[in-house]
Design a protein around this nucleic acid. Structure first.
Lengths: 209, 209
DNA sequence: CCTGAAGGTGAGCAAGCGCTTAGGCAAGTG
DNA sequence: CACTTGCCTAAGCGCTTGCTCACCTTCAGG
């Protein structure tokens, strides 16, 4: 029940965050936000999980909202990077779409705590921070739509409604963060494989691309 | 920005809730919870939207959590009713699955405020109330799995992983409540039709069932 | 050995929270 | 008429919240 066990699925070291105390606070915040939601989490809880006094938080972050923003920004950067890598990769549209869904889903399952905060606490952000993040999300949407459009143009896919299908594919992947449970029966890899297959069916790709 | 405009998409009268003051409070709570989340909503806000003093809330509901529970219970009852009606209906498995997805999605889009509260504020419930609601959700899962199993048995569907696909179908539909926007380009009917088609593809039904 | 920056603490403030209480008013009943 | 009942409010209690402030410790550089 402690932080250590809960974090097993999240081997990511958040290595880009320094100094060490700031990273420990950020990791603690991810856990707390994921478990109870942003608004139900107190700054005392975050500081306590990081083994510090409540005041220590404000040495490294101006406000509680800035902590959320940092998490959201890093998470969206990572998510967008995953999708762009797949979109810009080699291979047929089906192969790239499959790879995109597989790695995107694997990230959402393997880092489901981070992903939950990233995907479901968007409107806890302040106005400026939210518009910044929304811009990143539009880029994610564009990356997926790009692959699907390629597939349609190449005759690989049969998609009557490209924007709608793009939305559905992303929605399907994102919602993994809501239901995925480390104690469940499926590994992130298995869910990724299942979802890649389902998405190829959604776009009408010939089976087993 | 007032309550009236926001509620346009939700013509549902919550007719099962009486007396009138209790219903007004419940509608106000749905709006507030959907916009800001359960924890970020204050009892003063709810009472204010209903045109009452903060104390009036406690004449009709014991706690703020009881309000959430009532909303969640009514919403889950409605959602389960939609799925069971489709599952128990006439026609091929493809027709029943299509009808289930279409009406389930239409409800999530048309009542997206209620649905958002119902689907995304589950762990704000107290322990007892949550287990009660989780039981209802398992029944929803069973209803969808039943249709898919029927289709597989009849040779209509090609589904390698029935539990996983069931989960994905429900997940896809539920997430509509997160992104659907009344100001957006799509009507609930259009989203329902699109999603019914996508789901039939996911289960490998022959096109246009 | 002194100094100043960096990183931490304990105590606590102002504001806002969920919820309670005492009491008021209108309608229905003997 | 008196009295009860149902619904509502004004005031406010006890507590928690995000955040601040005065102060302490550690340690590198001159």
């Amino acid at each position: 029940m402690g932080a250590a066990q809960e974090t097993l699925g999240e081997e990511q070291p958040w290595s880009e965050v320094s100094p060490d105390a700031a990273r420990r606070l950020l990791v603690a915040a991810v856990e707390a936000f994921a478990e109870r939601g942003y608004h139900a989490t107190t700054t005392r809880d975050i500081a306590g999980r990081a083994g510090m006094s409540p005041a220590a938080l404000y040495i490294h972050y101006k406000t509680k909202e800035e902590l959320l923003h940092r998490i959201s920004r890093l998470g969206h950067d990572k998510a967008l990077d995953i999708l762009r890598t797949a979109a810009d990769g080699e291979g047929t549209a089906a192969e790239r779409l499959s790879a995109a869904v597989r790695s995107f889903v694997r990230w959402h399952a393997g880092h489901h705590m981070t992903a939950r905060v990233v995907q479901y606490e968007l409107d806890a952000l302040g106005d400026e921070h939210r518009t910044e993040i929304v811009a990143l999300r539009r880029q994610s949407d564009a990356a997926v739509r790009e692959i699907i459009n390629d597939g349609v143009r190449a005759g690989e896919f049969d998609v009557p409604d490209v924007p709608g299908t793009t939305l559905a594919v992303l929605s399907l992947c994102i919602d993994v963060a809501r239901w995925f449970n480390v104690a469940g029966r499926r590994t992130p890899d298995e869910v990724g494989a299942l979802y890649a297959d389902l998405v190829l069916r959604m776009v009408g790709a010939s089976p087993q691309a």
